[in-house]
Structures are given as C-alpha cells and as structure tokens.
Design a protein around this nucleic acid. Structure first.
Lengths: 334, 334
DNA sequence: ATGAAAGCGCTAACAT
DNA sequence: ATGTTAGCGCTTTCAT
C-alpha cells in the first residue's frame, strides 16, 4: 500500500527557488540568499521568503548546489572488507568508530556515505574526502582511494608511505602493557594469537615481544587467527591437543581471548590459575565473561572523531598529521 | 605534509566529458553515451572514448548526473539516536543491520548515507529513499522523515499507521518462546526487564504475558530498564535488596540479561539453579558468558537486507509490505 | 551512428 | 538591498 512520490504528479513536483521567486515577485537569487542566511537580505524579506518556502514545502536540491559549488559536503567512509555478515560483527572496527566519525561530521554539517572498498573502486561516490577503515593486508584499498585523487585518512597502523595520514591506537604500547602484565604475574611461556599480516596486529606483537626482551619470559608460539572467538578457541584447542605448554596468552582481540579461555576451561585448565589471558579492545562483553577479561582498551569513539577532524582539515587544505592514540590496560581477573 | 588536491591546479582540474569530446573531435553526448554503454555507439568509438577517458583520468561528476536525472541512487539510513558512545557500543543491533543493508544496497549499485535523525531533520541529505532504524518512543523520527515526502521503511515494531512499511523481528513470538522455556523449567515468579516504551520491547512483554495466561506462572514485576548490562544489574540488585523473590527472568536484551546474572551471582544465587534467565538477541557474547545465556535469536543481517530491498522497491514505485521475521530460542545453560 | 540545443536547480560574479 | 547573466557537467529530446 505504499504510494511513494510517484511521477504522476498532479503538478505537485517539488518546488524550486524559481517557484518561490515567481510567487513572491522577487529574483531567485534573492531566494537563494535568504535561505542561506546571507546578511545582504533585508530581515523582512528573508522572513517572508523563508515562510513562503516552508509553506510551499520547498527543499533545497543538493545535487544542484553541489554541482554549482563544486563540492559535496560529504565524506566517504570506506570499510575495507566485503560486507559479509559474520565478518562485520567480528572485525575490530565496531560501530563506535562510526559513531565518533558521525558525531564529528554531523557537527561540521557534513554527510557521510558508507561504502565498501569494492563498491568504492567501481563507483566512487561523490565526496570531498575519504576515511578508510583498515588498510587490508596489502595496500590495495589505499591505492584505490589514491586513484581518485581525493584527500583521505586511514584508521590503522602507520606502515604506509610517510605522507599518509593515519590515525590509530598505539598498538606497540598496547603490546608492551600486555607483556608487563603477564610478566608481573610470572608468566613465562607466552602465546600470541592474531593475524600479523594485519598491520595493527603486527605492531601489537612487536610491542609485546620488545617488552619481553631481557626477561625470562618469551613468546613460545604465535598463531595467525581471525578476529573471532571461534578462531581463538580452535587455535588454543589445537595447541593443547598437541601438548604445547604455556601459561600466558596475549590475544589480538577480546573475541579471540574469550575463545581461548573457553578452550582452556574445556580442557580443565583454570584462568587465571593456570594461564593468564590478556585481550585487546575492551569490548562490551569483556567485563561480563567469567573470568572477567583483562584487556587493552582503545578508544574508538575518539579515534573516529580524530579521523573526521583530520579529513575535514585536509579537505579544507589545512594539512594534518598522523596520530597514535594512547591505550590503557584494564586489569580484571584473567 | 598532506597535499590534497589544492585549488592551485596548474590547469589540471578534473576533466569533463566536454574535454574528452574536444580531444577526440566528437560531441560530448557521444562521450556520455559511450561511457554509459549505450548500444547506439559504435564499438570502436566506444573503445576509443573509454580509453581516452581513462588516460585523461576522467571521473563522472555525480552531482551533475543526479541533477539532470533527478535522482541520486542513494538511500539514507537514519539512526534514531544521538551518536552517543555507550549506546552505540551496547546496542549491537545497528552494526549487523547495517551490514545487511550495505550488502543489499551495494548489490543494487546504490550508495548509502548514514545520518542521525537530528541531522536528517536539519539537513535532509539528497537521497531517493530512507531506512529508519528504530522508531523511538514517540513517532517523532518517522514524522521527520514523512515531512520529506521520501519513501521510507522502518526497523522496529508495527505500531504506527497501517500504511507504513515496517521490518522487524516477531517480538511477540520471541516473548512466547521465552515464556515456554521458563514454564518448562517450572519457573513461576517471573521478572520482565526492559523499557516497554520501546515498541519492540512492548511486544516482547506482550507475547511473554500472553503465553503465561492460564498457567501457574506469572509476571510478578516488570522493570523499565535501558539496554545495558549496568541497567540490568542495578534493577535486579535493587529487587533482591528489597527482598523480592523470583525464579525466572526475561530480559529485553542479552546485555540486560548478563547484568542480571551478575547481580544474582553477586548475591550468591545460582543461575540456573535458583533462577533461570532468558535474554534477547543472541549477541556475540551470549555463548561465551558463564553460564552460557539462553536467548532469543533475531537475524539482523537478513533484516537489513529486507529493509534495503523494500525501500528500493518503494523507490521504484513497486510497493512493499511489512514483515515480522521469525525468531528462534537458543537454549543454552541459563 | 552521431550531433545540436536545451535545461536540470542552484549560486558566483558583476551590475544596479 | 536586489537583480541579471551565466554556467557548473551532465543527459533528454529532437534532429540528421
């Protein structure tokens, strides 16, 4: 029973500035000025025009303005992954990053179009700038964006060319914090769980390994695994089945850590009795699982705001620099 | 060190179809036709034009096309909430819902712009249709969208006017399933936790209460609480402090349920020994917490796809109907 | 198979 | 304080 706004239109097409101008006997440029609050329009005229516009149900044609002004007031947010169901949930770029971006763009009166990198490469949306979430294993995504010539910023790790603006957490510092935590608990045989092809994860491992140098603790194994609980569970289960012994785990995400804990408990091992586990992200479930998960908190919302600010600066021709945001260890039970 | 695409431009502005046409000595309309794969252009001409366009770095000006064609190939997705950090975090529904929407829109070659209802009301983005996520307590959000005259669909509960297209889970059925589960476990004094101002939650409670009729079990109390673990914890803690006795809980979200379990355990009560708990959503953490949470699963990704399909149908003038999607009880330990 | 003209709705630049 | 002119880049319509 939907009616939409069919093109039958009994003469009720959306009115334009010209319609309002004709109605009032003014020039359409005056309408334009009045509606955009130009100070050169007399207050009374402005009020008259605004009221008439409202009465007639006028709405600005944004495509026309964009065409005329050669800009879009739109930032494209590109998610560097196929839009598959389970991946979206488990990837470490949750909605809070989008929330931060949205908050900042909204405040600046900018629109935000969301695409995947595939779609972006095929039909780049009209936008003044681009925020890329995740760089992917190779630099394909960034390359696709560079091809458009649009200014862009990236969430992730600063492994790309030096001029690129990257915002991300200080993943090395996160790795160091995890190492310190495990060392303070006298853990020596440590496991790292995470896909180090992923730049951020690589940094986490690097910080982790660095901080262990010169101590009696060491990374005895590193397992590439996806950002999911299932992957963490399987990895740990396999190791235990093989008889690998370890007493500490640093996982590249909380989901992985939770999966690891499950696998440990399923084999009768206690966390943190036998094995200590540190996750990454401080995701919502971390405080609720049993044992409560010790983890490295990164502030995505702030990251999102920074991304948005920086891309807007670039769009405005103001320049911007990369930023590694501080992280924090949240010591809970694990 | 960012350079952007400064307006200094040594004559290197983005080329237009006219530029390509001049370069090749053809009419710009021929360029237009060639680039849009019109069959009336000779194959050799098309190839020539495409190659030249690529060589010159041509990119379609979407604003111009939109203006000329009077449409945008864009769907606005409106999030009916302030982009506040914790709500976004604790409310997982938008993320997978967005995934489904994106998948479907992407496949249809549509762009997706994301806004909040506030921003939408101030500056409606240019879009051919709207997907509204969540209706809010009153009907404000839907009203703001209706004011634009754009076709729209809503995620939530079908409590609005009859013509409105609503996609959502069958929340009443979810409530019934929860009731059946608790009855089968001989639970009699039941608690409902959730904000029934929220249409979906209201339906969950209604189905729940309906299914209890004529049994010896009953809802002894219903507490309005936000969708967070903290709210669930506080609500249950307060009740226990007051000495209220109950042996079953149905929570409007998994987060609430997890908070409730925490509070129960903190007071030395066992789940499910003393109290059974049913959540809603089957969110990622549900299978990992201890005890593993029994919950009602709703498939957001499919919901997102449906929303997108239906709004595209409306945009195409094809009509669409509302849909309550089936839910499923996932019996775990709680 | 290709082209010329017109115009989508808006605003910058230059009058008045 | 208001108006005139022109044109953003594209595609529809009507020739040829």
């Amino acid at each position: 029973m939907a009616n939409g706004t069919g093109p039958l239109g009994g003469g009720n097409a959306r009115p334009t500035m010209a319609d309002i101008a004709r109605e009032l006997g003014v020039a359409k440029i005056t309408v334009s000025r009045a509606l955009s609050d130009s100070p050169t329009v007399k207050e009374s005229t402005r009020r008259l025009i605004r009221d008439t516009a409202e009465r007639m149900g006028y709405r600005l044609n944004i495509s026309a303005r964009n065409l005329r002004q050669q800009r879009t007031r739109t930032i494209a947010v590109v998610i560097e992954m196929a839009p598959s169901h389970d991946r979206l949930m488990s990837e470490p770029y949750p909605l809070s990053l989008l929330g931060g971006i949205m908050q900042e763009l909204t405040a600046a009166g900018q629109n935000m179009v969301l695409t995947t990198i595939e779609l972006f490469a095929q039909h780049p949306p009209s936008a003044d700038g681009v925020i890329l979430l995740g760089q992917g294993v190779h630099d394909d995504a960034a390359a696709a964006i560079e091809a458009t010539g649009l200014p862009y910023v990236v969430w992730g790790a600063a492994h790309g060319p030096p001029g690129r603006v990257v915002v991300g957490s200080d993943n090395r510092a996160g790795g160091r914090l995890a190492a310190d935590y495990l060392r303070a608990r006298r853990r020596r045989a440590l496991l790292f769980l995470g896909e180090t092809q992923h730049g951020e994860v690589e940094d986490r491992l690097q910080g982790f390994a660095d901080a262990l140098k010169g101590s009696d603790a060491a990374v005895i194994d590193r397992i590439a695994c996806a950002f999911t609980a299932a992957a963490g569970r399987e990895a740990v289960d396999r190791l235990l089945a093989e008889g690998t012994a370890f007493d500490g785990v640093f996982a590249a995400s909380d989901a992985i850590a939770m999966g690891a804990i499950e696998a440990l408990q399923a084999r009768g091992l206690s966390v943190p009795g036998d094995v200590s586990v540190v996750g990454f992200d401080d995701s919502p479930g971390a405080a609720i699982v049993s044992p409560k998960l010790t983890t490295i908190r990164q502030d995505w919302a702030v990251g999102g705001e920074l991304l948005a600010k920086k891309v807007l600066d670039l769009v405005a021709g103001k320049g911007a620099d990369s930023r590694a945001m501080g992280v924090e260890l949240v010591a809970r039970e694990s």
